[in-house]
Amino acid sequence: MSTFWQQVVNGLTLGSIYALVALGYTMVYGIMELINFAHGDVVMVGALIALSVSELLIHQGLSLPLALSIAIMVSVLVCMVLGWTIEKIAYRPLRHAPKLAPLITAIGLSLLLQQIAALIWGKSYLPFSHTLTTTSWSWHGVVISALQLDIFGLSLLLMFLLWHLVHHSKLGRAMRATAQSVAFAQLMGVNTDRVISQTFVIGSALAAVAGVMDVMYYAVGNYTMGFLLGLKAFTAAVLGGIGNLKGAMLGGLLLGVVEALGAGYIGDITHGFFGSNYKDVFAFLVLILVLIFKPNGLLGSNTQEKV
């Protein structure tokens, strides 16, 4: 039983990172019906910047917590600017273009970000050798590290803040209005261009934090790290019901747990025929099953096409 709970704990940690990234996908999709394929790479940029900046500051003699805090702030800022720029340059001009056009620019941007990152940071895996704390608690054989708690707690806090922003602020109201209908929101005096920009900025800030968490958790960063992470986060968003904030949070956590449990048990279940090297299959398998049986995701509303 302790393996089970250990995997749940690991899964929730991973899942909270997925959830933060999934929020970015879901917000953009909710408002513009666009899969922002470059979102995963924004996570990567955030991660690598935090990694470099903190290494640099520690080298300058700053204490780890201080260096890390500054690094997070820098990476959040850079990613916000990046998100804003991406929307402005690559998506805004295509708002009325055929549907696949923005998908292609998104793919182009994703490739662009990866290659630029490869130029700056090189192609090898960059280690992050510092740990804030090695404290951990053990309870009936289940080990929870302080880092896991930090990641989980910070994610929950950010999700709560976002929730509050969307439901109790003027910007949030404008976002929800724009998601309902861009045209009507404009008629009601909402500057939808600005709302869309701000959505990208907020999503990118969350992505940056998620990137930092990922680097801390796995203690390594690389220019391709955004790809699979982004893919899984998008899966999480679809799983929960894309366009739905609660869905992204739930989908992220759920996906993390399923993946961790799947990786932990597949060997036993198949008597060693399949090993944990199949763990990435679970994300997609879950997604496919959910979509087949509940095509709008777990929390998505079941809308009937209006005739």
Binding site: A90, L94, A97, T105, G108, L111
Partner: peptide
């Protein structure tokens, strides 16, 4: 690095072509 630059230019080409000719 030419390998990098090649992909960067390719990516840029994708973005620019879509901006100019979305259909």
């Amino acid at each position: 690095d030419p390998a990098n630059l090649r992909l960067i230019m390719f990516a840029l080409a994708l973005v620019v072509m879509m901006l100019v000719r979305p259909e």
